[in-house]
């Protein structure tokens, strides 16, 4: 253990299967200390399985998982002392108050009683739950539960934090609110591994993004690197039906790199304005009347579609246990 410090989180060639279901097929990534990694992928991609392995809840079939240089399968107890986990479901006791939930975690992480009280108060304050401190959690809204759940993962001030789809199921307002809290947290130096199926979320919160699909890493980089992969601009043309979209796709191949996504056609181009003009001319000549037409910056959605051939949020079936 000399020289450069190990990355805060390290996954090396992780495999995990249940019978014929291969949740992870050789997944590797690293999260340097003090940075945020977004593990991005649709439901069933293997994100949760990776998090469960790194947080000692599950043993990998093969491969190594390390947190702060500790092998998590060999030293689970020491790993647990250094990590915070907020899973997909708000893991709270409904019949306890917000403060009692935080105290419960504080006592189970063996903090001195005085520090538990201080931590609980400061977390409730920080997550805008101070007014609800002594209310039973069963009276909380979804957004409040999520905030308290993240707060509960922070009671023992772990240097490494895992958030598994922290905003899934929240409305836009709740999501934006939680993002602000997470940004503040990351600003304070916590290393964060965040899984999400929301591309916007990874774009906003993560320093680096690992795209995972069907148990494999299919791309890795910063949000702008992933977008740069696609050319500078996207022309998106939507039609009223699939048939028109298919015909348009057949005609527009010369304009730029093209993807057909249901009733929409996306063309990645380098130079937006002339390409747009050309697109209009072709569609007009073929009497293909689009419902909408837009010229925009590429989003991570485009990246995902390009990489996997399917949209990121289309697959709603949960496969990973």
């Amino acid at each position: 253990m000399s020289g450069t410090p190990p990355p805060a989180i390290r996954a090396v060639d992780l495999y995990k299967s249940w019978g014929d279901v291969h949740a992870l097929i050789g997944v590797s990534f690293e999260v340097p200390t003090g940075t945020v990694l977004g593990l991005l992928g649709p439901n069933g991609a293997g994100k949760t399985t990776a998090v469960r392995i790194l947080t000692t809840l599950l043993k990998p079939d093969r491969g190594t998982a390390e947190v702060l240089g500790l092998d998590v399968t060999r030293e689970p107890m020491r790993t647990r002392a250094s990590i915070g986990l907020a899973g997909q479901y708000a893991a709270l006791d409904e019949n306890l108050t917000a403060r009692e939930n935080l105290r419960l975690v504080g006592r189970l992480t063996h903090l001195p009683p005085a520090r538990i009280l201080r931590q609980a108060d400061s977390l409730l304050e920080r997550f805008a739950l101070a007014d609800a401190s002594d209310r039973l959690v069963r009276t909380f809204s979804g957004g409040m539960r999520r905030r308290l759940d993240v707060a509960a993962a922070l009671v023992h001030e772990p240097p490494v934090l895992f958030l598994d789809e922290p905003t899934t199921g929240l409305d836009i307002e709740g999501r934006t609110e939680l993002w602000a809290f997470i940004e503040e947290l990351v600003g304070a130096g916590t290393t964060l591994l965040l899984t999400t199926q929301y591309l916007e979320e990874a774009d906003r919160l993560a320093d680096r993004i690992v795209v995972i699909d069907h148990g494999r890493v299919i791309a890795e980089g910063t949000a702008s690197e992933l977008k740069a992969h696609l050319g500078a601009t996207v022309i998106e043309v939507a039609f009223d039906d699939h048939e028109h979209a298919r015909r348009a796709a057949a005609e527009l191949g010369g304009v730029g790199e093209l993807t057909l996504d249901g009733k929409a056609v996306r063309v990645n181009v380098v130079d937006g304005a002339p390409a747009m003009l050309e697109t209009v001319r072709i569609l007009d000549a073929e009497h293909l009347e689009p419902r909408t037409m837009a010229l925009r910056e590429p989003t991570l959605d485009d990246v995902f579609l390009e990489l996997t051939g399917h949209a990121a949020e289309a697959d709603r079936e949960e496969v990973s246990p």
Binding site: T55, T56, M77, L85, Y89, A91, L92, D93, L108, A152
Partner: peptide, 13 residues
């Protein structure tokens, strides 16, 4: 079911 056991299992208890 509620994920509380996951939280407990992720704590150094």
């Amino acid at each position: 079911q509620k994920g509380l056991v996951d939280r407990f299992r992720s704590l150094p208890m």
